[in-house]
Design a protein around this nucleic acid. Sequence first.
DNA 1: CCTTGGCACTCAGGGCAAACGAGTGCCAGA
DNA 2: TCTGGCACTCGTTTGCCCTGAGTGCCAAGG
Lengths: 340, 340
Amino acid sequence: MVDDRKLDVLRAIVEDYVATEEPVGSKALVERHGLGVSPATVRNDMAALEEEGYIHQPHTSAGRVPTDKGYRLFVDKLATLKPMSMAERRAISTLLDGAVDLDDVVQKSVRLLSQLTRQVAIVQYPSLSRSTVRHVELVALTPTRVMVILILSTGRVEQRLVELDEALADVDLAELRVAVNRASAGVQIAAAAAAVVDLPDALRPEQADPARTIVTVIAEAMSDHRNDERVAVSGTANLARYGDFDTAVRPLLEALEEHVVLLKLLGESGVDAVTVRIGHEGPYSELAATSVVATGYGPQELHLGSLGVVGPTRMDYPGSMSAVRAVARYVSRILDEGNQ
Amino acid sequence: MVDDRKLDVLRAIVEDYVATEEPVGSKALVERHGLGVSPATVRNDMAALEEEGYIHQPHTSAGRVPTDKGYRLFVDKLATLKPMSMAERRAISTLLDGAVDLDDVVQKSVRLLSQLTRQVAIVQYPSLSRSTVRHVELVALTPTRVMVILILSTGRVEQRLVELDEALADVDLAELRVAVNRASAGVQIAAAAAAVVDLPDALRPEQADPARTIVTVIAEAMSDHRNDERVAVSGTANLARYGDFDTAVRPLLEALEEHVVLLKLLGESGVDAVTVRIGHEGPYSELAATSVVATGYGPQELHLGSLGVVGPTRMDYPGSMSAVRAVARYVSRILDEGNQ
DNA sequence: CCTTGGCACTCAGGGCAAACGAGTGCCAGA
DNA sequence: TCTGGCACTCGTTTGCCCTGAGTGCCAAGG
């Protein structure tokens, strides 16, 4: 049913179509790939492949185009990841090693990924909720104004300004700082939020009230999941290469504005497992003409976020998959180092 | 030479062309606007306007289209800012008042601006270099690892990790913290960088070396102008409404990827003075088909950054100008409040 | 039973000419 | 100075034919 040569034919069709963007015919196929059989034979196979829904004919006198189902088979059975070239590897490592902070890592990664794949790249910021607390700093700007600074394991820094009803002495603030850090350092953020709220109970009453105000803000900042929705996007200009503006480019441009949509697109695939979603397989019917290649990243199999590329269903899957995997690995490594 | 009725004709041409996206003829003009004269008269005026370079005829049997020079005259002499509607004003204030931090303000503004104008909106992050230092915090994560946290007047927080060759005692770190803050609090960032570097000279030799490492990093962070290049972009999907893909959309999409280009586009117009750059007037020949409407923002006439919209030369200038001005004012007000 | 060469058939796209019509410029008269 | 009339221009649309790529089917050969 899916005999070897037919698979070869399908692979050839996909590769040619991706390269030329035009329906591919039997004759061109045997010429460009050394299939060792005649066009007529290929035609028979094509007829069978079409029967089974893997390819499709735009009109009678045209060549064949892979269907979503065809791409799926291609990706599952036929695609061998192309290894990154030495130059590409070097580019990745030198670029990302030069990143100075978390923002920098994300922005450089997304840029890099879009350049490697010549597609639209998306990188989710490391999710707050999975990270642990590295340090909490309390700074008295004035006696009744305290700045709370939260330093997380991913390198992310959150700050909040707290207005107190009554002044809190410096020594008391220092005491609170020590207590908060003892309770939360190294603890996962949600747990830390819970651990911190009860600390003021152990203090003298006149300290307790302002302290309560402060820890409430700390806990809020720790449970603020706003950051989970942040994503960086790059390579929009690559959309210009699309042929079909209305069905492909416009809906995608609109989707790129909606970060929530993007996150849903990226999905939650595991670290080191590259997921491919082809056309209609995705959750949005308007994006039936686009595919997503994504993966999770994070140190030691801990899923901190996702990254990937989106493009037309007619895209270079093997190349995209390996680029996505390579970038994800580097990002994971860097997050790990900053954390050691 | 530029008699009143001809100006009216020009205004009518611009308005119709903006609305319909098609060359406008004499007959349609007198119908849609109550000009009170016959098409033949309008034709005479059109001939004169064309002679003077304000409008242009794509081909003999077509209507007229404004030239860049025509738009310029329209903006300079004819455009009356349309006031924002009550609903729009309310939308702006409720949205922006709900912003929790600097990032939030910028992101909400850019989004808002693109929705109001249905164009691509650009907001520059408040430039670091013009802000003052609110507080510097030094946190010893381990005896040889210090986290430097810089809190600026705009609400921006910068952090740096410093690795020391030799340990620095907590008391010495505290002393350094006090000295650094005394030297830099309230001072403009560039001056603060200079003021801080010499502080270690006054310390005991065994403190001085690690302290020097630390202040070097502080000074670096203060003189790091990376942030001056940061911009937020929104509304790319509005490009989909453009007719002409190759001349208008593609170059603009490419420009949007290059933040440096965007900043140059926005320019440095004064706070409360809306600048309009039309087509070829801008610095990039590839963007000859796009116009920029921009202005500066910042509290009390202090230019902290720029924001604006970019779109086709055929755009709604009056609407864009008033939206840009309104958003800039709100942003200025909010930055002022956070700083009081 | 699979492969191959031959052959008739289909149909999108390109080239070409004619018809159309929106819009103009100009001119003579009010 | 404005207006109505009129001849003219030229891009666009329409219809047509033709070409050629590509197919499906069939009969013959391994």
